[in-house]
Simulated assay, not measured.
Amino acid sequence: MTLECINPQDLPTPDTYTQVVVAKGTKLIFVSGQEPEDIHGKLVGRDDIAVQARQVFANLGRALAAAGALPKHVAKITIYVVDYRRDDHLPIIEAARVALFGDHKPADVVVGVASLSPGYLIEVDAFAVIDGQD
């Protein structure tokens, strides 16, 4: 599997994601939105975006592993945040993100939403590409 990460010279170079990702592989993996829930489906970290962010990225890692993928195979993520405030939320989200992805920087978008399930503050979905032998 090959992910070519491109930051065009005429666009800003982001610290935590890549402007363009070109994915070449044979197996596409689509991960549904991961919520801040434990293995029993119970909400983790009510009213605490940091706890919830860590949980959704940990859940994303487990979902990828179930499909035979690693975080480095992720081409794009979408992050949904209730009442998103960039200055307040972005550093918290980036810390949780780096815990899963390390130096890998998939393309991403952060979407502010009015609500998710009651008490849920964040959700993350993903798209990954691997070769059959990966």
Rank of each mutant, 00 (worst) to 15 (best):
D83Y: 10
V56D: 03
M1D: 10
G112P: 09
P71M: 03
A114D: 11
A69D: 02
L90W: 10
F57Q: 08
Y84L: 07
D88V: 14
Y120I: 14
C5W: 02
I122H: 04
V31H: 06
F57S: 08
V124Q: 04
I130N: 00
T26M: 00
Q9I: 04
F30D: 12
F30H: 13
T2G: 14
P12K: 09
V44T: 08
D83K: 15
D10P: 09
R54D: 15
Q55M: 13
G33D: 12
K24R: 15
R86I: 09
V124H: 04
K76W: 03
V109C: 14
Q55I: 05
V113H: 11
V20A: 05
I130C: 11
M1P: 15
Y84A: 08
G33T: 06
A65W: 02
D131P: 07
V51M: 13
Y17Q: 12
K42F: 08
D47R: 13
K72W: 02
P36C: 06
T13C: 07
E4S: 14
E94M: 12
G68C: 06
P14D: 01
P8R: 06
G102Y: 05
A66K: 13
A107H: 05
F30P: 01
I29R: 00
E35K: 11
L116Y: 08
T18L: 05
F57R: 09
A114P: 05
G132S: 14
A107N: 11
C5L: 15
L116W: 08
T78E: 02
G132Q: 13
Y17G: 03
D48I: 02
L60W: 06
F57Y: 15
K27T: 11
A58N: 10
G112L: 05
T16R: 10
V74S: 01
I49S: 01
L11A: 12
P106Y: 03
S117I: 01
A128M: 01
A107Y: 00
I122P: 08
R54G: 12
F127P: 00
V82G: 09
I93L: 15
P8S: 02
D38I: 02
T13A: 07
D125S: 15
L70G: 10
F101Y: 07
Y84R: 03
G119Q: 02
V56K: 04
A75R: 01
P71L: 00
H104G: 03
I49A: 01
K105C: 14
L100S: 09
T2N: 15
V81K: 00
